[in-house]
Every structure is written in C-alpha cells, then in structure tokens.
Write a protein that binds this DNA or RNA. Structure first.
Lengths: 225, 225
DNA sequence: CTCGTTCGTATTTTCGATAATTATCAAATC
DNA sequence: GATTTGATAATTATCGAAAATACGAACGAG
C-alpha cells in the first residue's frame, strides 16, 4: 500500500532522500548544504539539487539566503515551543474530526499503522537515535490518526509540522534514553481511544503525548547548547 | 518602511511577480503555467521560472504534476471551507496573543496599517475586482493584527493561508458588488478592538470578518461553476 | 465506426557551462 | 594591534541546449 513512493523525476527522488536525511538527523541542524558536493553525491546536476533544496526551504526544513546558499534549518527552543503548540492544536483538531466523521476504513488504517509501529524495533544497530524504519512507522501512525478528517489542507499542515518536529526529536533520542517513558503504551492507548471514538480522552492523550516529547527535547536543548 | 521588498536575485523578482499575478486573480485558477511563455514574458531563462513555480507550488498557490507542468491552483468550495476554518483558528490565536503580549510598537503598526488601508481606494479604474494597492494594504493590515505575537511560525502560516484565500476573494469581488457590507467599518472596529486590548471581542470580530468574506465567495462559487 | 498504434510536435526535465556574487586571506595602512 | 584593501578562490545564480516525456493527430486494422 505504501512501499516505494516511486518518484518519477530525478528531483523528486533527491528531494525525498534529502528530506529523509534532514528529518532523520543525518544532516546536523544549521549545517551548510552546498550544491556541488550534493550534486556529486547524488550523481545529478546542480539544477536538480537546487530544485530539491528550494522545495525543502519552502517547507521549512532548510533555509535559503540569497547568494549565500542553503543550510539545514537551525533550531531554537522558542521555535520548538511555538511549533509544538501549533501541532497540538491542529493535530487535536484533525483527530477530533476523524473521530467524529471517520469511517471504518479510517479505524482500520489506524489499527494497521499501529500494528506496524508496534512491531518495528525502536533502535537501530549502529547509528545513534531511533531507526529510520521506526521514524517512518511512527509518522505513518500519527498520520493515520488525523487522516479520517476530510480536510486535505489540515492534513498536509500537520504532516509538514511533524517533519519539522522530527528534526528536534532526533536530537533528544540521540543523547538520552528518553527517561522512564513508555512510548509504546502511549501509542497503544492512543490507538484504542481513537478507534473507540472517545473524542475528549483521545485528544487529551494526543496533546499530552506531543507535549511530553517536546518537554524531553527541551530539557536536552537547554542543558547542552 | 516597506516600499521595495528588494529582491536581489532574479528568481525572487519573478517569484514575487508571479505570486502577485496569481493572488490578484490575473491568472485564472486552474490555468496552465507554461515555462517558455513565462520565460519570454519575464525575459529570463526557464530555470528561473521553474524555480519560482516550484516555490509557488510548495506554498500551495500552484500545482506541479510531474512531467506535465505547473498550473494555477484550482479552487473548490470544500477547500475554501477548510481553509477558512483554519484561518479563523490560527489568526484568532495570533490576534489573541498579540493583544495579550504585544507592545506599543505593535499597537502603532496596527494603527498605521489601518490608516493606509483606510486611505487606499478599494476599486481600480479598469481591471474588475479590487485594486492591487488595496489588496496589498489589506494584507498588511491583517498581517499587522497578528504580528504582535512573538511566534514566527504562526505568523508565516497565517500569511501563507491569507495568500491562498486571496485567490478566492478576487473571484467574488469581480462578479458582485460585495452586497451591502461595510468592510471599512469592520476593519475600523477591528483596529479599535485590538488596540484597546479587548481580546474576546476582537477575536469574535475577526472571526466574523473572515467568515463573512468566505460566505460571500461561497455564494458566488455555488451559483456559477 | 471504433479502437488501438505510430509518429511528429510541444513541453518538461536534466545537463554542463558561463556569469555574477560572495568568502577568504595576505599585504598594507592607520 | 586592529582595520581596511585587493587579489584569488569558492560558490551560487543564470543561461541555453540536449534528453526525456507527454499530447494529439493521422493512420490502419478489426
């Protein structure tokens, strides 16, 4: 059903790969994204890289300063706070509407996404931080929660903001064992509350879930940089 | 204080001009945006046009179908409803926080923006619809209302959505005299409520203001297409 | 007459190279 | 010693053309 998003054009492939690199924390926040090295690495012309970077910049994952090139978006505590507040509001809205109007197919997709997430190992062998597979399954699960509302714009907004949040989350999972938190249990509760249509409780659980993650990241941010 | 947004690079100039064309309704919604004609019109290479169009697409003002080119974003009643609901929520939030935390400079900028808007003629000589100058002043005023909250992400979101809404608004002002509505009075009330820090009333006025515009556009949409 | 195929054309996508701009750093000046 | 200047290198922005793809018309078979 998902598998390869199969990007037909070169630019899309590069765009997806670069986004994954940023979102999964392989590119340090704030680091420069120079055209020629990237062109070499992906074995494409600079135009392709440039177009991909322009898209990423427009989405807020990179920054373009005219005549000075691109860099990975830089992170600040204030931005994370701002971002999290917006995410809580909008994802809560999407979830609430999904619970109110979502059909059985939506319920099924939530259950399915949770099933995958539950069975995906959180940590990877080497690379510190969570595995790409888990990050992906995690994003898919949260996506599924809000996908029942018939509002494309709201959905794409929450997706975009989730990507931005990932840049921060990667930072925290790298440095600390995420405290004594049972994330899997939170997800399971979320899934059950959503599919049993308990709107208020589900929204509360989702809000707490998002806020908790941010608080951990914030703690890590303050104590380091 | 504003004057020339001074785009240093060619792409930025083209981007701004094209966005203005779309937002001000000079490009029919859904119409194709072909590269070579645009390159000729702006007297630049296709690369520049392409980059501008990619940016517009990423912002939701155009659409890119791989290998099939760009077109002006197409409009639907459902999207406008979705969009308006989000705008009401987020602009209300920005306004409320501005009222709570904005300083005197913010108040001043609201008064100033309203002053300009008040003195800008609504209709232009020829071109049906509102004048570019008024559209600009109008955007600046609404921008000023929310600019007092110290949340860059929220601000840029509301800006982006306002642009999208403009595509719709242009459609309605072209075809009807906007009924018996005193938009100027609404703006004045908004300005006064905001600067006198009446949060609840200001937010209610803003929500009603946005919803009213949408209702008019929706009426026009249903009765035509 | 309808459906499918082939081919030419229009358009997009990608490339490689040039022009323009910025960054670097050593020498020179105050 | 700090700041400015000027040449050089590195990088981005732009261009024009080649390659790939989609679109539509003409054609032929069933």
């Amino acid at each position: 059903m998902s598998a390869t998003p199969t990007s037909n054009t070169l630019t899309e492939r590069v765009f997806h790969d670069l986004r994954a690199d940023i979102v999964n924390g392989r590119m340090p926040a704030g680091s420069a994204l120079k055209l020629s090295p990237l062109a070499q690495r992906f074995d494409v012309s600079m135009s392709v890289i440039r177009e991909a970077l322009v898209r990423l910049s427009e989405q807020g994952l990179a920054q373009l300063s005219p005549n000075q090139g691109f860099k990975v978006v830089s992170i600040t505590a204030e931005d994370l706070i701002d971002l999290t507040d917006l995410r809580i509001r909008l994802e809560s809205l999407a979830l609430a509407e999904s619970i109110r109007h979502g059909d059985t197919a939506w319920e099924a997709s939530v259950v399915a996404a949770h099933h995958v997430l539950e069975r995906t190992p959180l940590t990877q062998a080497e690379h510190g931080g969570t595995s790409d597979a888990w990050s992906h399954a995690h994003a898919e699960f949260h996506d599924a929660l809000g996908a029942g509302c018939a509002r494309p714009r709201l959905i794409s907004l929450t997706r975009s903001m989730r990507d931005s949040s990932e840049v921060y989350r990667q930072l925290s999972t790298t440095r600390e064992g995420s405290g004594n938190r049972d994330v899997a249990a939170e997800h399971k509760a979320l899934m059950e509350l959503a599919t049993s249509r308990k709107e208020a409780e589900a929204v509360a659980a989702l809000s707490a879930h998002l806020q908790r993650t941010t608080d951990i990241v914030l703690a890590g941010l303050d104590s380091s940089d």
